[in-house]
Design a binder for these strands. Structure first.
Lengths: 237, 237
DNA sequence: ACTAATATTTAGTCTTATCTAAAATGAGGG
DNA sequence: CCCTCATTTTAGATAAGACTAAATATTAGT
């Protein structure tokens, strides 16, 4: 039997890996709000169960088995998030915590019935892709809004789902998946970013902007206002 | 924070109490499939948390607090069972195990949304009454089918929800809540019971009959036929 | 290359919930 | 009334997963 703790650690490592960072002891500890010593402890267990490769002092890496388990739980999480919004009327800021608990206990049967009820969906309410039944998932290359330069445009693809207050704020601003935005200004020294979305303009901080990731980033044809020189998109990654 | 173990113990005590038995250490241990010593241990904790009154060597009794917590979990369980059958297409033999895990993790928010989606229902698929939002529940006086005498009739009100194979069998025989039945024969020495339900006749064992509880029990006007000694029949599994 | 700062691991403790084996209690039959 | 036997409790061990404090390894700055 795979404990909930094991599932949580594997999921955390997966998320750190796919966000391009190194799954260090500290990074895992911070994400799970546990002490680093607890992480070391668990990494040894995970390694003995062949779920991660643990190189002491160098962090961990998921094995195929570990990734499979992580993806199974992530599939549960994202299907649940979508189900709760679509079929039980939850708002998008409420579903993360609920899914966080449910994801560990639903059966394959229930996973499949939810999947069917939703028409085998591909993304959850925050734009996160849902692994399919074979646990294959396409993690697209996305650009954080914080990396866009004035004059660039893009389409919001994913937003972080973990902070309800942030999600409510983003919703107020209509900064939701599939919304098109243009960066009109960006203050120096990691200053706030001005954007246009719909017919509105907003200015948001860099911290928030890192939690918004975009697809289809390119230079706008006509830059509405901003004579700052726009270099041919470097940051697209 | 109330642990899942605590919830399980309180629920077990509640079920034993409402089935008219004494919540002895052994009875609780058997229901939860744990060693009696584990129960003694937990009863001390529950007592210190004012959830039960524990008289050593005499078993336990729920306090108002303990009953409240038990009913909260039971409400979750029964709402979930009904939701899974009504909205996700589960059959009635599949829902107990699923609900058993989900009941511990759903929020009040989710409880309420499920309750609404179902139209604030009063009973679950097995006929068990669902405590309302104030955790008030009417536990009716019901007669086990095993206690009926030949010539008596009644309406199935509740069946035990814990054994999927039994539920599938009962469903095959259409021995489901709201079905009217007549006892046509009962073999001596706790022998099998012959019944009529719909247009069919079946003979079932006493053990099974104790898991079927009836309301509106009374003598039938005319007992259709009953001189033929009914043998313990080809019990289809 | 050496030292200071940071990251990680080790060692030892705690809590929860389980177990087994042994001791104690209580209830029923003679 | 007492003795036997089933029930219950006590005592002590174990496992998972967390913690703190101390030791050790790595990395960065000069």
């Amino acid at each position: 039997m795979i404990s909930q703790a094991v599932e949580d650690y594997l999921k955390a490592i997966y998320h750190i890996q796919t966000s391009g960072r190194r799954p260090s002891t500290n990074a895992i500890a911070e994400r799970l709000s546990v002490a680093p010593a607890s992480v070391t402890n668990m990494l040894k267990q995970l390694a003995s169960m062949k779920m991660v490769v643990h190189t002491p002092y160098q962090g961990a890496e998921l094995t195929e088995l570990g990734a499979k388990i992580a993806l199974e739980v992530i599939r549960h999480h994202r299907l649940l998030e979508l189900y709760l919004t679509e079929h039980l009327g939850f708002s998008w800021d409420q579903v993360h915590d609920e899914a966080e608990r449910l994801e560990h206990v639903i059966s394959e049967e229930m996973e499949n019935r939810i999947d069917e009820a939703l028409g085998r969906p591909l993304v959850d309410p925050h734009g996160d892709p849902i692994p399919n039944r074979d646990l294959v998932v396409e993690e697209e290359l996305l650009t954080p809004l914080s990396e866009l330069l004035p004059g660039q445009r893009g389409v919001i693809a994913r937003v972080s789902d973990r902070d309800p207050a942030m999600l409510r704020y983003l919703n107020d601003l209509r900064l939701v998946p599939s919304a098109s935005i243009i960066v009109t200004d960006k203050a120096p020294f990691n200053g706030p970013i001005s954007i246009e979305v719909g017919n509105e303009r907003h200015t948001i901080g860099v911290e928030l902007a890192t939690h918004i990731r975009l697809s289809a980033v390119k230079d706008a044809e006509k830059v509405p206002s901003s004579e700052n020189p726009v270099r041919p998109n470097d940051a697209v990654g």
